[in-house]
């Protein structure tokens, strides 16, 4: 029993200490960090890194780009994926099965497999250095997992509901918006959170397609800070805190949904 409690505490510290270290370091100067990397700052906490990073970097711009890309990617992926899931679950024939297989196959392909041809395609379509380009690729890449989760859920909805409304003269669009979507809300919200985390944190596609500072998202901007600030960890960690803030705040309030959402993604991915 004691050993169990001890292990739990050790694991908790393994998570907490690095996180505290990030917060603490962001409130110290570089000199203080070099002198005493883990100690408390001698003359109190300083917000100078925060004001410096906002002065030296276009943080607001990066923040905006990440927000736009994430919101549109999540919303459109959910929209298109739920339509496909509705279609597959209603069809229940070989076409539906084929489409389902085609989409789920996509979950097996790591992004690095097609990044080379994708890059040249984006160049040809003039979609590099464009937020629209990122959004379109994000949708295509996360459709498989979203279709998979949502189809699994929609297949469990009772057929009688749809049959009854067909008799009442409802078309597919009405059944999709009035029946399938509202009833799939738990599954939709879990998928939304999974996608939200994925898109907000994505590095690969911005790294491939964005070179202009005006279109960089937070993860890519952070990676650039490493080039500029090298081992200036106070500045790097200030960047980390700003970039993670929305996710952390959302996690604190929606913890249960996060756990459910991220696990649904894993279980089905």
């Amino acid at each position: 029993m004691l050993f169990r409690k001890f292990s739990l505490a050790v694991y908790a510290l393994l998570i907490l200490i690095p996180l505290l270290m990030v917060v603490l370091t962001s409130l110290k100067t570089l000199q203080e960090t070099f002198r005493d990397p883990l100690g408390l700052p001698a003359d109190g906490f300083k917000w100078s890194n925060y004001s410096a990073i906002f002065q030296e970097q276009t943080m607001a711009g990066y923040f905006m780009n990440s927000t736009i890309v994430t919101l549109f990617s999540v919303a459109l992926t959910l929209f298109f994926a739920s339509m496909i899931a509705y279609g597959i679950s209603r069809l229940n024939n070989w076409i539906g099965n084929l489409l389902f297989a085609l989409f789920t196959l996509g979950m097996m392909v790591p992004a690095q497999v097609n990044m080379v041809p994708l890059y040249s395609l984006m160049l040809d379509l003039n979609l590099t250095n464009s937020l629209l380009g990122l959004i379109l690729v994000n949708i295509a890449v996360t459709l498989p997992i979203a279709v998979f989760i949502l189809t699994g859920f929609m297949k469990t909805l009772p057929k009688e509901l749809f049959e009854a409304s067909t008799i009442d003269g409802a078309g597919n669009w009405q059944m999709y918006t009035k029946i399938a979507l509202p009833l799939s809300l738990p599954s939709l919200s879990a998928t939304a959170i999974f996608l939200f985390v994925m898109h907000w944190n994505d590095l690969l596609y911005p790294l491939l397609f964005i070179t202009d500072n005006a279109y960089k998202t937070l993860p890519l901007a952070l990676l650039d800070f490493q080039g500029q600030y090298s081992t200036n960890y106070p500045m790097l960690f200030t960047g980390v805190i700003i970039a993670s803030a929305p996710m952390v705040i959302a996690y604190v309030f929606l913890q249960r949904f996060f756990v459910a959402g991220m696990t649904a993604g894993a279980l089905k991915g």
Binding site: F79, G106, V109, P117, I139, A140, V141, N172
Partner: peptide, 17 residues
């Protein structure tokens, strides 16, 4: 219902793969 998703999936995923 399949058209928008399948369109993007084909261009930005299947084709490059």
């Amino acid at each position: 219902f399949f058209i928008p998703g399948l369109f993007l999936y084909s261009i930005f995923f299947l084709y490059p793969t």
